[in-house]
């Protein structure tokens, strides 16, 4: 049986799909054409990836006129996060994440 979690992990296990999510995180509500811009992938390939992301509920779409807009939906990722990280660990994990980010940012200077 394919569970919803399987779909989420499968959808995330691909660099192109993660890249599409990164794009939506930077700018939400993009059309298919906008998502194709600046990508080496064909329109068909992007469409295929978006279908998998939608099935995993990582992307939500809304119609605006004739356009279909794509939105990043991080709710399933949050569910995975809360499943394995206990309430007392969260602060420590967040602090480590912040530390890593701060250290990596200072490397860029």
């Amino acid at each position: 049986m394919v569970t919803h979690d399987d779909k989420v992990f499968k959808a995330l296990a691909d660099a192109s799909r993660r890249q599409l999510l990164d794009r939506l995180r930077k700018k939400n509500g993009l059309t298919l054409s906008e998502l194709c811009d600046g990508h080496d992938m064909s329109r068909q390939a992007v469409t295929k990836h978006l279908v998998l992301l939608e099935e995993a509920n990582l992307v939500t779409t809304a119609k605006q006129g004739r356009e279909k807009l794509h939105y990043l939906n991080p709710v399933p990722i949050n569910e995975i996060y809360t499943r394995w990280i206990g309430k007392f660990e969260r602060k420590q994990v967040q602090a480590l994440h912040n530390l890593k980010q701060a250290l990596e940012e200072s490397n860029d200077d």
């Binding site: 309430k87 969260r90 602060k91 994990v93 967040q94 602090a95 480590l96 530390l99």
Partner: peptide, 18 residues
């Protein structure tokens, strides 16, 4: 439910606290 108040505090955890 999830202990949402504990989660929300994570956002304010800083490097200094570490």
């Amino acid at each position: 439910a999830i202990d949402i108040m504990a989660l929300k505090q994570c956002g304010s955890a800083t490097v200094k606290e570490t």
